[in-house]
Amino acid sequence: MKIKDQDVLSGALLIICALIGYFFAAQLENLSVAGLSAAFYPSFLFTALLVCGAALVWQGVKREEKTPLPAFNWGKLLATAAALALYVLCMQYAGFVLSTIGFLVLAMYIFGERRKPVFLGVPVITSVAVYYLFSKAFMIILP
């Protein structure tokens, strides 16, 4: 079955998350003697999510006019997320300035920048400026 309604999809996702949450909450140790364990409050929240999920599914199924699913530009989204993840990873090994230059070049390309002087100037100036701003003005040690 292909889900075509945004509320049905959102509701189904909430129900799945709530069930996974119940599973993990059930694994928590119970040290409480008074009857309120560490799992009590999270289970309460998962119940709220389950009820909200069911209500959304019900709303979506019942409604004649469907709410269309959101359109994602997955290519650009995943490319940006991957660039950000790579940036965090590279910062640990290559240091702040080099990794920032690399990230800015990549991110500006993803955002559609194509001018060569901008590709050369902005990453170098920005990374050096941010590095000195953080380390000298704010006394924050960057890698």
Binding site: L84, F96, T100, L104, A107, F134
Partner: peptide, 22 residues
């Protein structure tokens, strides 16, 4: 296309700076 990559850099740097944590 220039502003948003710089904002991203500030996001990651800010996230790191609070606890010096990758």
């Amino acid at each position: 296309q220039i502003l948003m990559p710089i904002v991203s850099v500030l996001c990651v740097t800010g996230g790191y700076a609070v606890n010096n944590s990758f």
